[in-house]
C-alpha cells in the first residue's frame, strides 16, 4: 500500500510538470504581440512596454519558464495585472466560496443521485425507472448556464422565493448563506445527479443478480437490510469513481455558474481574468485547478483500497 502511494505520487510528478508548462504557455497562443493585445487598443507605447516588462515578455520564453518554475516552491504564482496583487493570495481568498458551492453541489448529487439510481434499479422498467432516465438525460443535455437563467427567472424573479444571485458569507448569516447556494447548487448538480443515478442503477442491477444477494434473501433477511448492507457496499466502488469525477466537473462548472449567479468564487475570478486578459491570473488559476484534480484522482484511487479489500496494489 505504502509503496503504491509513493509510486502513484511519483507518477503524478511528470503530469504536474506538464500541467504547469501548459498553464504557463497559454499566453504563447495570443496572436501577434501579446503585450499590446493585453494593454488594449488605446494603450500608448509606454503602457505597452510597462505591460511587457510586468509580464516578463521582454525576456526569452525559456527564461520566463524557469522563473515561473522557480517561484512555485515558494507559492509564488506571479502578480495579477487587474488586481495588482499576488495571484496566489487572490486565489486562496476565493477557494472557500467555490468549495462551499462545489461541496453543496456534491451533497445534492450524492443524496439525490444514489437514491434515484437505487430506486430505478429496484423498480427497473417501470415508470419510476423511466422518470429517472428522463431526468438523467435532461441533466446531460440541458446547458447549465441556461438552466441557471431559467431558475433565476422562475424562483428569483417571478416567484421571488430565493435570491436571484450573489453570495452571503456563512459567518454573516448562515440561513442566507444556504439560501444563496440553493439555485446555483441545483444548476451545478443536475448533470452530475443524472450521471450518478445512471451508474448507480447499472451497478445495482448487476449486483442484485449475484448469488450472495439471493442467499441473503433466501435466508430471510429483510429487504432493506439486503439492499442497504449487502448490495450497497458493492455498488459503492464504481460510484466512488463517479463522485471523484463529479467533484472535478463541479469545480469546472463553477466558472460558468459563478459568473451567472455573481458568486465571488474562484470560477468567477478566472472568468474575469479571461475577459480582462490577466494572464498571470489565468495561468495560476489553471495550474491550481488542474493540480487539485490530479491529487483528487489519486485520493479516489486510494479510496478503492479502503472500500474494497479485493483491490490490491501489488505490482504483478
Amino acid at each position: 500500500m505504502a509503496e503504491y502511494v509513493v509510486r502513484r505520487l511519483l507518477a503524478a510528478i511528470p503530469v504536474l510538470l506538464l500541467v504547469t508548462l501548459i498553464s504557463a504557455s497559454i499566453m504563447q497562443l495570443v496572436p501577434g504581440d501579446p503585450a499590446s493585445m493585453i494593454a488594449g487598443q488605446n494603450a500608448s507605447q509606454i503602457e505597452i512596454e510597462r505591460v511587457r516588462v510586468e509580464l516578463g515578455l521582454d525576456r526569452p520564453y525559456g527564461e520566463r519558464m524557469l522563473a515561473w518554475f522557480a517561484g512555485l516552491p515558494r507559492g509564488d504564482l506571479g502578480r495579477s495585472i487587474l488586481l495588482q496583487r499576488s495571484v496566489a493570495d487572490a486565489i486562496l481568498e476565493r477557494v472557500p466560496v467555490t468549495l462551499a458551492l462545489a461541496g453543496f453541489g456534491l451533497l445534492l448529487t450524492i443524496a439525490i443521485g444514489i437514491q434515484c439510481g437505487i430506486i430505478a434499479a429496484l423498480r427497473a422498467n417501470t415508470w419510476v425507472d423511466q422518470a429517472v432516465l428522463v431526468v438523467a438525460l435532461a441533466g446531460v443535455s440541458i446547458p447549465n448556464f441556461w438552466l441557471s437563467l431559467m431558475l433565476i427567472v422562475l424562483f428569483g424573479v417571478m416567484l421571488d422565493w430565493l435570491p436571484a444571485g450573489g453570495y452571503i458569507p456563512f459567518a454573516d448569516d448562515p440561513l442566507g448563506w444556504a439560501r444563496s447556494l440553493i439555485l446555483p447548487g441545483i444548476s451545478l448538480a443536475l448533470l452530475q445527479i443524472g450521471l450518478l443515478a445512471r451508474i448507480t442503477r447499472a451497478t445495482m442491477l448487476e449486483v442484485l443478480r449475484q448469488d450472495y444477494i439471493r442467499t441473503a434473501r433466501a435466508k430471510g433477511l429483510p429487504g432493506l437490510l439486503v439492499i442497504g448492507k449487502h448490495a450497497l457496499k458493492n455498488v459503492m466502488i464504481p460510484v466512488i469513481t463517479v463522485i471523484g469525477i463529479s467533484f472535478g466537473l463541479l469545480l469546472s462548472g463553477s466558472v460558468v455558474i459563478e459568473t451567472v449567479y455573481s458568486i465571488p468564487g474562484m470560477g468567477r475570478l478566472l472568468a474575469n481574468a479571461v475577459f480582462g486578459r490577466d494572464y498571470p491570473l489565468i495561468q495560476g488559476g489553471l495550474l491550481v485547478t488542474a493540480a487539485t484534480l490530479v491529487l483528487l484522482n489519486l485520493v479516489v484511487d486510494l479510496l478503492y483500497a479502503v472500500l474494497d479489500p479485493r483491490v490490491t496494489f501489488d505490482r504483478g
Binding site: 503530469v15 500541467v19 501548459i22 497559454i26 499566453m27 497562443l29 495570443v30 496572436p31 472535478g248 466537473l249 469545480l251 469546472s252 462548472g253 466558472v255 460558468v256 478566472l270 472568468a271 479571461v274 475577459f275 486578459r277 489565468i282 488559476g285 489553471l286 485547478t289 488542474a290 493540480a291 484534480l293 490530479v294
Partner: peptide
C-alpha cells in the same frame, strides 16, 4: 487534468 470548460475558455480567449 484541466477542467474542460476552463481550458476551452482560456484557449479560445487567447486565440
Amino acid at each position: 487534468a484541466f477542467p474542460a470548460v476552463l481550458l476551452a475558455i482560456a484557449i479560445a480567449a487567447a486565440l
